[in-house]
Design a protein around this nucleic acid. Structure first.
Lengths: 231, 231
DNA sequence: AGGATTGTCCATCATATGATGGAAGCGATA
DNA sequence: TATCGCTTCCATCATATGATGGACAATCCT
């Protein structure tokens, strides 16, 4: 049975869903404090009263946006895990980076939102909070960095975090970072994927002995140091 | 000759400097919109009029905070470059990560601020903007990824970006991430350093020959032209 | 048709916030 | 002491914002 939010989203033309979409976009662009109910209403082209009629107070709308992301990201992670289950770590990373990039780039606003809502303090005491921690643990287990979710070392968690942070940063910062790279949106996605693979795959597939979790991937260090050439 | 801002900071007990410090802290915690002049005044323990007397409008104070960071980070990067100049890339990365972590952890608020001010849109048209782009180019050149600042490929810039983003994310998100790792502050710094080295050093020093996953970028070129090669 | 329900907007309120003017305090100097 | 300049605070304003009540219109149901 669908959650109340799923029911709303299943009718994208409904006023409640249109308001939701506008709110998602604006909250992500300007943050919670920086977004006013009037901005949201204007984006939809309605009166603020209509907004309040459908959603009640601003915070309710904000929480719905967060809750929605939480569900979506969880579903997406399970999807990816199903695809790559049993494959080599190298292959898993490749697919995961590819898939997560595609997904998050289609939802840049939400990606921004989750990063900011996690990092920025709220003056309100009622912090919503998305279950990022849960996902990190799941990924760590899925990558074979721990036997189960209760026995994950801080080191392992931090390494998964590094992956997530890189990914989220590149996508959340697109409007800021892309002009620096001076590429068009499609190229930006490609560059980000390539960069993430460049950064992450060597780290996780190397044999360094201090990794208690490395199981099925022995990537001999080919000493093709193309970058170290200088000096 | 000191800049106006340096002059202010040189007298830490002066009202103007105390206001500056409080503003820096609060802007970083709550963002620009989420911070009110009354909050800043309350933090210092003064009336808002006193704040306006010393700094004028809110935006002026905000810009000063950004400008200050801009100067500090630029200085720090030059310091690090001076220390590691001529050393191996591995050693440079090791020192740079160590030094930047130490520095940024001593200035978590400012680190947060710069990340948010870059990533969050402002309703005001006058975007301040810090010269991140400049620093990325400098680092790319310093790492031997390009001959000069005018000939840096998007790929090279993106790789430097990945370093910067990881670093900034881990530090900006400390209040959110540390509870997930469940470690004390000192341990958190250590874990972050170790994780960044784990992630970054293999990528930049081993270069396992396969950027095999991505299509076009065939740059198996030897020496430092692998990245600098303009396509 | 007639009434109820639903959805939308206009007008409005209460509060928070950016900003200012003026009075009062305080120290230095003549 | 009197005066001046610098600093701080109180009172206040104008606007923006979250939120609400009520009027009006459209739709549905009998």
């Amino acid at each position: 049975m669908p959650t109340p939010l799923e029911k709303v989203k299943s009718q994208p033309d409904s006023m409640k869903a249109r308001i939701f979409a506008a709110a998602q976009k604006l909250f992500a662009q300007y943050g919670y404090e920086g977004t006013t109910t009037r901005m949201i209403a204007a984006e939809v082209g309605i009166d603020i009263s209509t907004l309040y009629y459908h959603w009640g107070e601003k915070k309710e709308l904000y929480l719905a946006v967060l809750e929605n992301f939480d569900n979506e990201i969880g579903t997406k992670l399970k999807e990816i895990e199903a695809i790559v289950h049993g494959k080599s770590l190298h292959h898993r990373l490749d697919v995961a980076i590819e898939e997560m990039c595609n997904y998050l780039f289609e939802n840049i606003e939400v990606t921004r939102l989750i990063l900011f809502s996690s990092f920025l303090k709220s003056k309100d005491t009622t912090d919503p909070g998305v279950s990022i921690s849960e996902y990190i643990s799941n990924v760590a287990v899925a990558m074979g960095m721990a036997m189960d979710k209760s026995s994950i070392t801080p080191t392992a968690k931090a390494r998964v975090m590094a992956m997530v942070l890189s990914l989220f940063s590149f996508i959340s910062g697109e409007t800021f970072l892309r002009p620096i790279l001076d590429v068009d949106p499609d190229h930006y996605i490609a560059v980000v994927k390539e960069t993430l693979k460049f950064i992450l795959i060597p780290a996780f597939t190397q044999q360094t002995g201090d990794l208690s979790f490395n199981k099925n991937d022995s990537q001999a260090d080919a000493n093709n140091s193309a970058i170290t050439g200088k000096n």
